[in-house]
Simulated assay, not measured.
Amino acid sequence: RLRLAGRDQLAAHTPRPKPPGDALLAVQVHESAANNAVARLGLSGRRFALEDLVTTVAARLGVEPRVPDDLPEHVSVSFAAAEPIRVTCEDGLVHVHVTLDSLESSRRSWYDIVAHVAYRPVVDGMQVCLEREGPVQLSGPGHQGRMEIALRTIFGKIFAKERRIPLLPAGLASNPRLADLRAVQAVATDGWLALALAPTTTTGVSAAPATATGAPAQRLLRRR
């Protein structure tokens, strides 16, 4: 068991979900761990072009940066100084709240925008993915409920519904020695995201079934 938090950060305050009895591997991640990690990315108060944002976050996470081909071009975002990104897990969904001081495109700019995106964990064999649930919700003083088609189009591409987010490392999900395992738990509740793997003989899965969606192509950026 491993608990992660900085000396100045909050940690979990609710009981973690109980994994199935026959689970061989179970992981429970509290939303505070995600928020602690986001706080260490250094996004607060900074301005990024979208491609630069992808490469910056990838570098901080130590992974190869991959930029989706459908990511809007010539768009820059400036994050709020306080809580630019906040993650919550409740009611079966992972909620992501993004607070921006500004979003600038080649045609116009918007200010003081809050975007809310909900993701549902879905099972696809051994892999568990987050799939967007419903449209991106926009609010904040700079939006005030107006129907901004251009702004919604940009956020719809940033958080594309067909672009699922895999939660298990590719090396683990494709490991032939684990071929007889499948995901039997994928739930988001009471501040926790819980995953569990068990032998394929296990019956029942605590998650919504995966839908057949194709992931868009991605551009691979090489570090210089």
Rank of each mutant, 00 (worst) to 15 (best):
G145Y: 10
V128C: 05
M126D: 01
G145T: 09
P72S: 09
V122P: 00
T56S: 14
L172K: 03
H95T: 15
I165F: 13
V187P: 02
E131L: 09
L151K: 00
P176W: 03
L138F: 15
Q185T: 02
P68T: 06
A115Y: 01
A58Y: 03
S76C: 05
V117R: 05
I113V: 15
G142V: 08
I165W: 14
R163P: 01
A49Y: 09
A186H: 08
A115I: 09
L61V: 10
R152M: 08
G45N: 11
P135N: 06
P72A: 08
E90I: 05
G145V: 08
P65H: 05
G140Y: 00
A118R: 15
H97M: 02
P176E: 10
A170E: 14
R163F: 07
R182M: 12
A150F: 13
H116G: 10
V184Y: 13
R120L: 03
E51T: 15
N175T: 03
D124R: 15
I149V: 14
L138M: 10
D91W: 06
G191A: 07
G45E: 14
V184R: 07
F48M: 13
L103V: 12
A118G: 01
A186S: 06
G145I: 08
G125A: 08
T189S: 12
A82S: 12
V77M: 13
V98I: 13
L53P: 12
V123Q: 12
D52I: 02
R152H: 12
G142W: 04
D124N: 12
V184E: 08
V184S: 05
A183Y: 00
A188K: 00
W110T: 09
A80F: 03
G92I: 07
V122S: 04
L71P: 14
P65Q: 09
H74R: 15
V184Q: 07
V77R: 01
P65A: 09
V87C: 12
D101P: 08
E148A: 14
L50D: 11
